[in-house]
Design a protein around this nucleic acid. Structure first.
Lengths: 292, 292
DNA sequence: TCGAACACGTGGCAGT
DNA sequence: ACTGCCACGTGTTCGA
């Protein structure tokens, strides 16, 4: 009873990239051999890799041919020194079911890991390619962090644009609600907030956040001719390669949301440095637009 | 030199719950003692828990009282049988730096794990509470999967509503683009698609997907009085508790996107069963609306 | 007491 | 040679 530690296979992966992912509840589905699963062969007791096998039939104390050796790691561990002293009948019993207790522990742990990887693969599969680079575990969930952030931002943008188009004008300037801790903030009085190092800018709000070598840029400024183009080019010359760009416009105000990769040869190493560079860039663009 | 097995602390976590998460690139920040870090004390070589300490001062070959035991597992492993045979001077040298090589390995590995947990915490912190239930690792990324799915759906809905409001009417019926593998599909001809078990329905498109005990429901139907209310109530009586509900309407067609938790005492165990129950429910609602 | 979840140290296998 | 990543088996802890 209970005992739902059961592995049954199911076709995940058929829905790669935006498809559907169905799944019976509470189970650890099996990973098909996709990318180099690496698989350190020779388990003593079970092939384990053959798909759709029910494992852990725990309440069967007399299993025929299995479960009688530790992983056997080429090194004699506990080479059985002078143990058998006294009390054999009971100690025997103990030793033997302490053994398959150990076995279930091993199996359970293995399942846990397998399930983790399962989930990670799924998570990876429903992110766009560019968020994952280097398929290792940490990168996957690092990418997920960025991705979730971007999506959240996007729904925020979209939903407020939705209400904006319906005419209910608010008192706040457009898009300003997307900035929580901007490195730069355009005038309009509120520069007296002290203690966080927000600088005043004459031309734009800028906010940069970062995780690992992956940064999120938010820029709110006036519309200017070819501004998006120049921003992308400018970022490129700073060794920040643009992965995603999202532009939202209301009247003459525009919000750029960018997700960029900080290349290895990039000179900028903190959010503040990037923000400053960005600020300079925007100043230059503004100058150019005044020229004409 | 090299040897960047260094842990330095940094204030993550100050931005818990929707704040900003800045981070210098490429480092393994220290986890402050937030929730029960559990910490199996007594490392032989270092406290490790004191914040911001450079560890592994490796090149110190004659450490006083440490470094001569594997994790020490209450069981005598390799109880030093007949090792010291010959060749001491060179073997000595080898043994000693094979030791601190091992130590760096240990430290590196520890950092890797710590960073994983770091990421997991961040990921968890930017999901709404309801997506995470049971803060264990697998649940976190399981929740992330659902969350990402929902967000993606939401931006899809929003962005198409955006274009829809701009008047460019397409030839397809509204919202039908959200269904990839629906369990039920409302008439309009295309029932000849065979091989996937899509059933025909007279009243709605229904698509159910699921991961672990967390299901995503999409329903596209005509507007009916109090329909949303009845759906939620009906789901509740099926032991499906609604976590999120998203309603989008175009003309007389409405799209419900629900994220529900499948409670333990729920009789329905597959996506198809849930879809069928949902279909019945909608039929009943339709009947009732005809009554009046 | 059993079971679930973790952190740990370790070996192995890739890249560089 | 070295570094990073991973799977493994194990000990421990926390909750039923």
């Amino acid at each position: 009873m209970a005992l739902e530690a059961v592995v049954f296979s199911q076709d995940l992966y058929t829905s790669f990239g935006g498809g559907i992912w169905t799944n019976g509840s509470f189970q650890f589905p099996q990973i098909p051999h996709d990318f180099p699963e690496k698989q350190t062969e020779n388990y003593p007791f079970e092939d384990w890799n053959s798909s759709s096998s029910v494992l852990l039939p725990i309440p069967s104390p007399e299993e025929p041919a299995i479960s009688r050796n530790p992983p056997l790691e080429a090194e004699s561990r506990t080479p059985n020194p002078i143990r058998p002293r006294k009390r054999r009948p009971k100690s025997r019993k103990n030793k033997e079911d302490i053994e398959n207790q150990r076995m279930t522990h091993i199996a359970v742990e293995r399942n846990r890991r397998k399930q983790m990887n399962e989930y990670l693969s799924v998570l990876r599969s429903l992110m766009p390619e560019s968020y994952v680079q280097r398929g290792d575990q940490a990168s996957i969930i690092g990418g997920a962090i960025n991705f979730v952030k971007e999506l959240e931002q996007q729904v925020q943008v979209l939903s407020t644009m939705e209400t904006k188009t319906k005419g209910c004008s608010s008192s706040k300037p457009p898009f300003s609600e997307f900035f929580t801790f901007p490195q730069f903030k355009s005038m309009e009085g509120c520069c007296s907030l002290g203690e966080n190092e927000t600088q005043c800018s004459s031309i734009a709000d800028i906010e940069v956040t970062m995780v690992e070598n992956h940064a999120n840029l938010k820029i709110r400024s006036k519309r200017r001719p070819k501004q998006a183009l120049k921003i992308v080019a400018g970022l490129h010359s700073l060794c920040l390669s643009v992965l995603h760009l999202n532009i939202s416009t209301i009247n003459q105000i525009v919000l750029y949301c960018l997700s960029v990769k900080v290349e290895d040869d990039c000179k900028l190493n903190s959010v503040d440095e990037i923000a400053s560079a960005l600020h300079q860039l925007l100043c230059r663009i503004e100058e150019e637009s005044v020229m004409n």
